[in-house]
Nucleic acid binder design. Structure first.
Length: 447
RNA sequence: GGCCCUAUCGUCUAACGGUUAGGACAGCGCCCUUUCACGGCGUAAAUCCGGGUUCGAUUCCCGGUAGGGUCACCA
């Protein structure tokens, strides 16, 4: 069997769209699944609107997603190739040069190239939708080049796909109506017909094609708010495709393994940021530490001006962050808002907060805190909350969990809300915890 | 408007003629942790409508309806 080749042909006239990212993903998955190639082609034949900056952003975006390509080319550098094909089919009278008035510059006379349309009904097989039939008559002798040296999109695409050995064209549903004219061109240049698979569109809330007016559509916007590439890939894969099993969390290798064109959805799918957030939350628990750590360190430096934080605390804090965060930017936000103050700042204690019950005074908590100090003093330090819990749990159960745990937690963090006391102690280490509890006792006595 | 595509909970989807129409996200409720978060359990919520075909249609066919895409000397 011939080697599978898929492609992603973005035109560098805008940011990397989330829909383009998904199309790239599906092409990537299919190619990798079949041990084929996945190539990228910059469709920059519209010189006026294409920029190198966008091209670069698109390439970087795909790299960020780990969607590696096997080759890269630019249509703007292939004019000679298009010209040779144009000359060939003109010689064969399958296309012709037509002198007409320029539409873009009225008054100017130009020689465009038009395809001789055989005006036939045309049916092609779509891997996701089955047979689709068009009457090509309505296309007329459509223009395929502005001039011999200036091929238009459809012509360039067909020549390139042929020259590059593309076997499977997997693209958005918005290209269905482009397919008949591309097939006509294929037949004119004698190219074989690739397999086609037209993907359902990604829709906005109002079920129209997702575009700028609907908010964030560019990949970089999701990267910037702190979504993991793993989560984006995972979500995008399941938006319009399903594995046929209840599994939802997929790594890229797992997606390659599970991917199957037959399970691509026909109907458009609404992009739901809430579900994306859920995927990100799940991935927060499993991404490598190196995906989280730089953000944490930057936040610590910014908020606390700590450039060399206690490594034990950082390590333990990352565990906490993993199941308390949704997007990476939560780290910065939470650090700024004081969520993790307890880890780096001794608390300023409000004795009134120590009281567990309304009719208590802060001083009532003193003997309990002293008992905690006694127990902790002889204990082995650990950064496992469970181990810390076992030191104190039986006492807390005996005296009353609220009676012990609430004042303890408040002395450690000074806050109304925080992680549980065992986790806090495990994070800080027993010596620091002891200092804080002792300090709390002193404050209470002085009040 | 012409052409093309599509139609299961609010959203993503499963069920390729026979199911109490399943799961996930979001929502709601309860439990756990005597704080927050995490977690666990539960609940509500759907086959667009009308005709066929069939013993039997979410499923197959036709027609409506609705939504979407596309109609360049853009890509």
């Amino acid at each position: 069997m011939e080697k599978v080749v898929t492609r992603i042909p973005p035109s560098p006239t805008g940011h990397l769209h989330i829909g383009t990212a998904r199309t790239a993903l599906y092409n990537f998955l299919f190619a990798r699944k079949h041990k084929g190639d996945f190539i990228m082609r910059s469709e920059d034949t519209d010189r006026a609107r294409s920029t190198l900056a966008f091209e670069e952003e698109i390439r970087e975006g795909l790299t960020w997603l780990s969607l590696t390509t096997d080759s890269f080319s630019r249509q703007s550098e292939r004019a000679a190739i298009y010209r040779s094909y144009l000359e060939k089919i003109i010689n064969e009278d399958k296309a012709y040069i037509s002198k007409e008035e320029s539409k873009s510059n009225p008054g100017e006379s130009i020689e465009v190239v038009r395809l001789r349309n055989p005006n036939i009904p045309l049916t092609f097989a779509d891997e996701v939708r089955g047979d689709i039939t068009f009457d090509t008559t309505e296309l007329g002798d459509f223009v395929i080049a502005r001039s011999l040296d200036d091929a238009l999109y459809h012509f360039a695409v067909v020549v390139d796909d042929f020259e590059m050995g593309v076997t499977h064209v997997i693209r958005g549903e918005d290209h269905i109506s482009n397919t008949p004219r591309q097939i006509l061109i294929q037949e004119a240049i004698g190219a074989p017909r690739p397999y086609y698979a037209h993907l359902p569109l990604i829709l906005a809330l109002d079920r129209s094609k997702m575009s700028k007016r609907h908010g964030a559509v560019a990949l970089y916007q999701y990267r910037d708010t702190g979504f993991f590439p793993q989560a984006i890939l995972n979500y995008l894969a399941l938006l319009g495709w399903n594995p046929g099993t209840p599994q939802e969390i997929f790594s890229l290798p797992e997606l390659i393994e599970a991917f199957d064109v037959a399970k691509i959805q026909k109907a458009g799918a609404v992009f739901d940021i809430e579900k994306l957030k859920w995927f990100n939350k799940e991935w927060f628990k499993i991404v490598p530490q190196s995906d989280i750590e730089p953000t944490l360190r930057a936040a610590l430096k910014k908020t606390f001006d700590i450039s060399t934080p206690d490594e034990r605390v950082v390590k333990n804090l990352i565990h906490l962050i993993r199941d308390r965060s949704t997007v990476l930017s939560d780290i910065t936000k939470d650090v700024e808002e004081g969520e993790y103050d307890f880890a780096f700042k001794a608390p300023v204690l409000d004795p009134a907060l120590i009281k567990w019950k309304k009719d208590e005074t802060a001083k009532d908590a003193l003997p309990r805190l002293h008992e905690v100090i006694t127990r902790l003093t002889g204990a082995t330090d650990s950064d496992n909350p469970e181990a810390i819990k076992s030191i104190l749990w039986d006492y807390a159960e005996k005296v009353g969990k609220g009676e012990v745990l609430w004042p303890l937690r408040v002395s450690l963090t000074g806050k109304e809300k925080s992680p549980d006391p065992f986790t806090v102690i495990a994070t800080l280490g027993i010596p620091e915890a002891l200092r804080r509890i002792q300090n709390a006792c002193d404050t209470i006595e002085a009040s």
